[in-house]
Design a protein around this nucleic acid. Structure first.
Lengths: 196, 196
DNA sequence: ACCTGAACACCGTTCAAGT
DNA sequence: ACCTGAACACCGTTCAAGT
C-alpha cells in the first residue's frame, strides 16, 4: 500500500529526493493557499529549480494528479470495502460522500478534477482510473437494486459531484448541496416480485 | 425594456459607439470561442485600443456581467410571468431550466457566474440582483407549497445550478445533470390538512 | 542523468502621451 | 472627455549551459 509515484524506471537518489520534495511542497502550499499557488513558489519551497520541477511534473496538471494519487487509492480501497455492504444504495451514497470530501481536499482542486474527467487523456483521468472502475461496481449494484437513477454512468456521477462549488460546506467539510444530488439520484426501492 | 448599459451619466457619442462595439465583439467572440478569448482580441475585433476597452470595462468580470445583463433581464421577466402559474413547483422548475440554459449560453460562462455569486460584491452578483429577487418569490412559493426542499435558499440554488459542468448537454443545450438536481429538490406534495 | 536559472510566451491591467 | 499603444506584472513552460 505504498503511495509513492508510478512504478516506472527507478530514479537516481537525488532525483527521487527532489521529486519527493516537490510533492511535499505542493501538498503544503495547496493546503494553505489552494491550488492556484504559482509553480514558481512550489519550486522555491521545495528548493529546486524550474528545470527540475518540470522534469518531474511536465505540467501543472501532472502535479494535480500526483497530489491526488493517494486519495484516489484510498477511495479505490474504500469502494472495495463497501462492495460487501448489504444495502447497495447506502454503500454507493457513502462512497460518494467520501469522494466529495476528498475531491475538495484542497481549495479549487475539485474543479480541476471535474474538468480533467472531461478529457479522457488527461492526467487526472488516468489517475482516477482504478478508483473509477471500483466505484463503477458500486454504482451498477445500486442501479440493479432499483434504488438508483439508471440514467447516469460513473463518469457523469464523478463529474457532477466534483463540479459542486467549494462553498456551502459545513465545518466538517461536507457539502449541503451534495445532499440534493444524492437525493436526486435516489429511487424508492421497488417491492420484490410477488407473482409466483 | 431597453437592455442597453446602466442608466449612469450619458456617454459622448463616440464613447457610446465604442462601448457598443466592444460589447458586440465580446458577444461574437464568446459565442465562437468561449469566454476565455483574450481581452486583446476583443479590443482588436471591436477596433479600439486597450485604454478604451478598460475604460468601459475595468475588468474582465465587468464584461462577463455586461454580456449577461440582457439574459438576466429576460429571466427576471420570465420569473414574473411564472409567478402566476398555478403549480408552484412546475413554475420554479421551468424557471430553473431557463436559468440553466441561459447560464451556459457561452462556453465557460456559467462557471464564472457560479463563482461570482460567491462574492456578494462582484459585478455578476450585482447584475443578478433583480432577477434573483424575482426568482426568490418563485422559490418561496414552491417551498410554501411543500413540494420543494426547504433547506436551500435562492443563492444556493443559483450557485448549484450554474456550477453544473458544460458537458452533459443534449443537442438542444439542456443538461441531463440538471434533472438530477431538480429531482433532488422536489418533494411529494403533502395532502391538504383535513382535520376540521 | 540530472540540475540551475535566464529567457520566452501569454494575458490582464495600467499609464503617459495625445486629440 | 475620451482615445491610443507602449509598458508592466504575473505565471506557465522551455532551453542553453553546467555538473
Amino acid at each position: 500500500m505504498s503511495t509513492t509515484p508510478p512504478a516506472e524506471p527507478r530514479l537516481r537518489v537525488d532525483a527521487q529526493r527532489n521529486y519527493d520534495a516537490v510533492l511535499a511542497a505542493a501538498h503544503r502550499l495547496f493546503a494553505e493557499h489552494g491550488i492556484d499557488v504559482p509553480m514558481d513558489e512550489i519550486g522555491r519551497e521545495a528548493g529546486v529549480g524550474k528545470g527540475t520541477l518540470y522534469r518531474h511534473f511536465p505540467t501543472k496538471d501532472h502535479l494535480y494528479a500526483a497530489v491526488s494519487l493517494e486519495r484516489f487509492a484510498r477511495l479505490r480501497d474504500r469502494a472495495d470495502e463497501l462492495a460487501s455492504q448489504a444495502d447497495p444504495w447506502d454503500a454507493l451514497a457513502s462512497w460518494v460522500r467520501d469522494f466529495d470530501l476528498s475531491a475538495h481536499h484542497y481549495r479549487g482542486l475539485s474543479g480541476r478534477v471535474s474538468e480533467g474527467l472531461g478529457r479522457e487523456d488527461s492526467e487526472v483521468s488516468r489517475a482516477c482510473l482504478p478508483m473509477r472502475a471500483r466505484a463503477d461496481v458500486l454504482l451498477r449494484r445500486a442501479q440493479d437494486s432499483g434504488e438508483m437513477d439508471p440514467n447516469i454512468d460513473i463518469k457523469a456521477l464523478l463529474t457532477l459531484v466534483s463540479s459542486l462549488p467549494d462553498s456551502y460546506r459545513d465545518g466538517d467539510g461536507s457539502s449541503n448541496l451534495l445532499d440534493v444530488v444524492l437525493n436526486g439520484l435516489h429511487r424508492a426501492p421497488s417491492p420484490p416480485p410477488t407473482h409466483g
